[in-house]
Design a protein around this nucleic acid. Structure first.
Ligand SMILES: [Zn+2]
Ligand SMILES: [Zn+2]
Ligand SMILES: [Zn+2]
Ligand SMILES: [Zn+2]
Lengths: 176, 176
DNA sequence: CAAAATATGATATATTATAACATTCGGAGT
DNA sequence: ACTCCGAATGTTATAATATATCATATTTTG
């Protein structure tokens, strides 16, 4: 288990931090699948083998994965898979809050906390492509205040911050 | 000239508000083109007829426009236009801060203030598709604080808030 | 003017996503 | 067990968005 430098109240707003290269990722996958089963059971929706498999593929790392990359991997074990196979599974997973779409990358990433209702806030590292998921109430509030002032009714938020993660900053990487 | 309900210091953070149906949009276009000329002159880059024309097409409304929609319009007067024609112009306009790309819509919208350096913050109305551009320092600060706490170096931000604008809320529209 | 850089034209193709219809499969009700 | 129904997946085709590459034209520079 990795330990953050933030306090607990603060940590709750970091749904999924940047992870070290060495972390036990198998555990991430196990937890994600368990959360998905629980979520689908509550929703009364069926978490089929196909959907489970696509979710596992999305969770193959903490980097966003494109639909056609998923398709390629999926085909290794399910030769009949076609684009609609993947997109339908992705749609299902998104509807049930199990994954998020990263708009600026046309790619998908596992949700770190499907139990909690939240909009999408992401820090995305240009160099290592990994993603941290936030649910930062200060960002939410700032957005809500401005929206209120303009009479705008917020229904969905997309916050995607591109930059360099701490690992990559310290290594002085400058890949792109 | 439309008057806002916000104070001046606050207004500076709303780069482009939602506009009434009846506003003088010709004036918006004139100002945008003038700002673009000024910007390109400062940058020592050439604001060619093609680029000007594409910018005018982007500014044909306050709604984001897709590249192929621009291409179609462009072809009316420039029959040789092809996808690269439009995409190259869009790239140029983005590099010089004259337009922004709305990632969640794969579409482009004119920038309300090319003189000022700013990341992209947008309120997007689901119903009437119009867009307001923000440069809200509270949002910026909230993002910066969280990023700092995680050692993340912010290079670019994408904030796209979907919802209903005040006009559409008051009309009780529920198109989609 | 010649060379080099910039801008646009032209053709082809890559990447991402959806439409439409067919088939399979598992339960609900008979 | 049989039939119907609806959900899930299979299958084929195509739409929508974006880029690669090379050719040509135009402008800038020495
Ligand atoms: Zn992990
Ligand atoms: Zn990184
Ligand atoms: Zn206008
Ligand atoms: Zn509206």
């Amino acid at each position: 288990m990795e330990k953050s430098t933030q306090g607990a109240a603060n940590d709750a707003q970091v749904i999924a931090p940047f992870r070290s290269h060495a972390h036990d990722h198998g555990q991430c996958v196990v937890e994600a699948i368990a959360a998905a089963e629980s979520r689908c059971e509550k929703d009364g929706s069926s978490f089929t083998p196909l959907r489970r498999q696509v979710l596992e593929l999305v969770w193959s790392s903490h980097e966003p994965v494109g639909a056609y990359e998923l398709l390629e991997k999926l085909r290794r074990s399910r030769r009949k898979a076609a684009p609609p196979t993947v997109y339908r599974a992705l749609d299902f997973l998104m509807e049930h809050g199990l994954i998020h779409r990263i708009e600026s990358l046309n790619a998908y990433v596992g949700c770190g906390d499907p139990e909690r209702r939240h909009g999408g806030q992401f820090l995305i590292c240009r160099d290592c492509q990994s993603v941290a998921e936030l649910d930062d109430s200060a960002i939410d509030k700032a957005v809500a205040r401005r929206a209120d002032a303009l009479g705008f009714d917020v229904q969905q938020q997309t916050v995607e911050i591109i930059g360099q993660c701490a690992n990559c900053v310290s290594r002085g990487r400058n890949d792109r």
